[in-house]
Design a protein around this nucleic acid. Sequence first.
DNA 1: GCTTGCATCGCGAATGTTTCGGGTTGTACT
DNA 2: AGTACAACCCGAAACATTCGCGATGCAAGC
Lengths: 379, 379
Amino acid sequence: MYFECSGNVWLTQGFVKRLRRDTIAFMTRPNPAVAQSATLAEIAREAGVSAPTVSKVLNGRADVAPSTRTRVEELLRHHGYRRRRAEASRSPLIDLVFHELESAWAMEVIRGVENVARDEGLSVVLSESAGRLTPGRTWADQVAARRPHGVVLVLNGLDESQRALLTSRSIPFVVVDPAGDPGDDVPSVGATNWQGGLAATRHLTDLGHRRIGVISGPSRMMCSRARLDGYRAALDTAGLPVDPALIRDGDFHHESGYRAGLDLLKLPDRPTAVFAGNDLQALGLYEAARELGLRVPEDLSIVGFDDLPVARWVGPPLTTVRQPLTEMAEAAARLVLDLGRGERPSAATRLELSTSLVVRSSTAAPSGEGRAARFGAGS
Amino acid sequence: MYFECSGNVWLTQGFVKRLRRDTIAFMTRPNPAVAQSATLAEIAREAGVSAPTVSKVLNGRADVAPSTRTRVEELLRHHGYRRRRAEASRSPLIDLVFHELESAWAMEVIRGVENVARDEGLSVVLSESAGRLTPGRTWADQVAARRPHGVVLVLNGLDESQRALLTSRSIPFVVVDPAGDPGDDVPSVGATNWQGGLAATRHLTDLGHRRIGVISGPSRMMCSRARLDGYRAALDTAGLPVDPALIRDGDFHHESGYRAGLDLLKLPDRPTAVFAGNDLQALGLYEAARELGLRVPEDLSIVGFDDLPVARWVGPPLTTVRQPLTEMAEAAARLVLDLGRGERPSAATRLELSTSLVVRSSTAAPSGEGRAARFGAGS
DNA sequence: GCTTGCATCGCGAATGTTTCGGGTTGTACT
DNA sequence: AGTACAACCCGAAACATTCGCGATGCAAGC
């Protein structure tokens, strides 16, 4: 066995032993200047409580009076307390918290985090923040209690108190596809949604479409807005007007794609193509088109977003913007682990992986217009 | 707060306190007859080693001489050692181990386990057993190290040594949809696959189909075989011959459904209906049918199995056999937790949830035959 | 033969954690 | 006012686990 000593210097056992004997254990004594910070017991004494109480504070147990808790926390912070034994008391875990555990979307992310975790010998803890837990205990409490190496969050919003909790326990975290304001100084990983929306729409304008509808995601989510703006930019570039009547809101689920689709397709001057916002909404749109007897892509071109596995499997295979969800999750996991090792600048990192258009068979030139169909439906 | 006392009797705090005061703590003393089994320290003394050494044995650390290890293990077994404090030294976790983390299938199972876990204040640890870990450490080692309340397994096979490891750490486990021999005395949760295959096929015979193909799953998996046998039984009941030419093997993935579908549909006397074995294969079959210009359900009826969310979303919506994956996973999770509490007879439990046919729009009466189509394709 | 290098094994002491009984306080009911 | 009760809070003691070191044994080199 070897001993690692301050970074990259390795000492053999024999050397250490000789050194210790020769120097009469002078150098190997814990150096008070480097200050192994106080022990739990010392903190306790100073705070005028018992060791178990301090332990409880550290572990976020419930039965500590708020006043005591703050006093102890103060002292802990002041002393820069660190568990003396067992810095390995971080569990070999990485937490993955979804706001809502649904759809194939989540699966891709899970896979990505799983991959990285396995490489690092860690396991993945999955939780959903939406449903309520035992009252008083949020996901953050549970996460803090198990001391994982890091947390990957897929949330709509990050509560300030939860964030403080993680920070105080020095558990690093990264947000995937954050919905919040971009002003946040939270490290995050996303995709180039704007460019994706642009590419999707430009693909349609390039095919010759002039009336292009869009079903946007929830407007509170940044990614929806970015995609929508990409759509607008593409229309603008092509010299086409942005018609508010062709813009519909959805919630990224199948059902809303169906409803918004019916709306759009029943317009007197219906669009010949629709950018569906995501793949699930695109599937809903398929259904609406079927119901109205419209053929895809002959009568209606459709572009999705995400490139879920199912996009390849539906009929006709869906043209969509590939969002590298698995890679994004991998990047997030790696980033959070690096943060834990202190290997990254603490400057908030914002990583954006690029999207790419995947052309399949759900898009074609508009048939009813002046220009003849230029492309067939073949894949 | 209430105190539970031996099963269903609940005592109020006041009552307990009064009792304790009045009886001068006589009755509430730990009863030596109920024998809190030996502590770690006692075991250590008896074995002639120190407490830390026993601790290491318990936790499977490496640095214990084999002879010492066996001696201590012997004593532990002999005394029926149990952690005295901290029966809660089980982490508030429940492990969920997949052989392969793929497809929407897994997502449903995850959701089910998640639901139960949240109710119980536990978190879910997800792992995949297929890829290799750091050499020498299998999923079972990791699971054993974190002492979860239970393990839900979704595996093809359960290694004997891994099983022994879990048993020796008294970590209960349950297998979902086991692929192995039914002779196993492992508690498990499944679905009525045979009945499902029967119902799917009978639905087709009832519609008037006479040539019904089937794309089976991997034959080593019990569920595939059960579904196939259900298919056979249904044909038999309807007085139809079982034509081996109409039976194809798949691997439950989209691609194999496509290939097998092409095979079947190119037969000179092609089937008018196919039971696709599962939903993914049904989607592959859709694609094959599209490619050959066959309409579903007019020219070809298709029945799937599983009822994944996507089954509702494809065009036409897929008639399929609903397998209550989420409920199965919930049942498995509950079962494994009950096992951990010793609330179930140790007799191996085999739970089978029932499947049910969900008729959508991918099935109709055969059109080319004597009897006219009786049902339209509308949903 | 003696030293050196290295690995294995086990312990003492330090450290953190859990259990669970008891004190204190606030509240509702008599 | 008195009683009963439950919530809340804390600590002593019991307990498990880790750290660092020493002891021992083996093999190679001088």
